[in-house]
């Protein structure tokens, strides 16, 4: 698993924010770490799966959805800030994210 560098973190954040901006037809500049995907910009939970497949390809990550599910059950990720944190953990730990739950 790649160690997350500040540059990777910044790039990941940009990818996530641009993704939600485009898919939800909202101005990128209005998004921040407290933006709630469902309540504030009309997104849904399925969108994260699309985003995940993008990062899985980009970093060759091996992770099962059920492993992410175990983590998310205890650490809900409804805001863009939380989604970024979750994504970085997946990049760094892959399927072992379940052990962090």
């Amino acid at each position: 698993m790649p160690a997350v560098t500040p540059a990777m973190k910044e790039e990941t954040k940009e990818i996530i924010y641009n993704f939600y901006s485009e898919e939800c037809n909202v101005d990128r500049n209005t998004l921040n770490e407290n933006t709630n995907v469902i309540e504030d910009i009309g997104g849904d939970s399925l969108m994260f799966l699309e985003l995940l497949s993008l990062f899985k390809k980009k970093y060759g990550i091996n992770v099962e959805i059920k492993s992410i599910g175990k983590y998310v059950l205890k650490h809900p990720s409804a805001t863009l800030g939380k989604i970024l944190d979750l994504t970085l953990l997946i990049i760094e730990h892959g399927d072992k994210i379940a052990d962090l739950a």
Partner: peptide, 8 residues
Amino acid sequence: CKKHTIKQ
């Protein structure tokens, strides 16, 4: 519709 909704 929003882009992500159209796909659904």
